[in-house]
Design a protein around this nucleic acid. Structure first.
Length: 359
DNA sequence: TATTCGTGGGT
DNA sequence: TACCCAAGAAT
């Protein structure tokens, strides 16, 4: 044991109390019914920056539709995006399929069990690698997520800024010493479970904590001031105009978003970012004329949808244009679909709202 | 390293 | 309301 932060720390007592607590108090969750590496993998990808309660129904449906690496490897992109619709961070599922295909082709369908190999897979970063290795394969590898940094900041009284990328490595180094070598799975999951149920961001339940005796922050009475975390900047507001182009036969025009970037390859209603709210109608009509060769007045917005992302806000004024027949605007990324068929396509939540209210 | 990538729930 | 937050990774 050479880690400075672990001097005079009761490692054995901490491991024992944490693991005993986890074995007794862990939640019953779908991905805990087996330690199959593929199932663990899917759950860990879904759980990135996403709450357990949100993930559960998606996980159950996803495993029913893609029960094996082979099933996911052979699915279409439209299928996997539809399965992910509403979960957010859609590159997760595209990366997951890319990685699963590599596992099928290069590893005979068996998820690799070394950090070196598993870390080469798309979408598998330091946390996910450690989670799969410890939970599925019982290896003593750290899995440092937000819970772990918060919990250990308090337990060991560490005042590094956990918002900084470099801080994660500090915890990883500590954990290579601190992690239980007998049950790395319960130890890692126990840290996260403790963070989720007891050692919460605000008002931690120290009176119920199984490791309060080992907690330096609790002894010092400063558990509410940890962890140290610098603040993020506010999201930028973007004024948008979207248009529902439809005809008298319930045909609707939709388009596919660009290959990369925000909401990549999801479907949407044609829309633009407008320079000014005052001239929004003119801007939209100009684009309809030049880009779609559709003449006509868009009138007043039929609804306004606001959607908040991590780093920006869309305030969307939704217009409607009725056309005759099906103007020939189709291409690789634009198509006419029956209103009743729209549900087959994967849309971002902001456009799901448009569908619900106006379609 | 800082930013880009969603969404919904909690306070 | 206006934040903050959640089992992060890619760029």
């Amino acid at each position: 044991m050479s880690t400075e932060q672990l001097r005079d720390f009761d490692m054995n007592g901490f491991q024992r109390d944490l693991i005993d607590w986890f074995r007794e108090n862990q939640r019953v969750l779908p991905w805990r019914q087996s330690k199959d590496a593929y199932r663990v993998w899917v759950s860990e990808i879904m759980l990135q920056q996403t709450r357990v309660d949100t993930v559960i129904p998606y996980y159950l449906a996803f495993m029913r539709e893609f029960p094996t690496p082979e099933a996911l490897a052979t699915a279409t992109e439209d299928q996997i995006l539809k399965a992910w619709e509403g979960l957010g961070y859609y590159s997760r599922v595209r990366n997951l399929q890319t990685a699963v295909r590599e596992v099928v082709e290069e590893y005979g369908g068996k998820v690799p069990d070394t950090r070196e190999e598993i870390s080469t897979l798309k979408g598998v970063g330091p946390y996910t690698a450690g989670a799969i290795l410890s939970i599925a394969y019982g290896k003593p590898e750290p899995a440092v997520d937000g819970n772990v940094m918060r919990v250990l900041s308090r337990i060991l009284l560490i005042e590094e800024d956990i918002a900084k990328p470099a801080t994660r490595k500090i915890f990883e180094r500590i954990l290579y010493d601190l992690i239980s070598k007998e049950d790395p799975s319960s130890f890692n999951q126990g840290l996260m479970e403790l963070g989720a149920l007891i050692c919460t961001p605000t008002s931690p339940g120290c009176l119920l904590c199984p490791v309060r005796e080992q907690c330096r922050a609790n002894h010092a009475g400063i558990q509410n001031t940890l962890p140290i975390k610098s603040k993020k900047k506010k999201p930028v507001l973007k004024q948008m105009a979207a248009v529902i182009i439809r005809n008298e036969d319930d045909d609707v025009l939709i388009e596919k978003r660009p290959e990369t970037g925000l909401l990549a390859r999801l479907w949407q209603f044609p829309n633009i970012e407008t320079v000014s709210l005052a001239n929004q109608v003119e801007e939209l009509e100009g684009v309809l004329k030049e880009d779609f060769h559709i003449e006509g007045k868009v009138g007043k917005p039929v609804q306004t949808v606001e959607h908040v992302f991590s780093h920006l806000i869309w305030r969307i004024s939704v217009y409607e244009v009725i056309v005759k027949g099906r103007p020939d605007v189709e291409s690789e990324t634009r198509k006419w679909v029956k209103k009743s068929d729209v549900e087959q396509f994967a849309f971002p939540v902001s456009h799901q709202k448009i569908i619900q209210q106006s379609l």
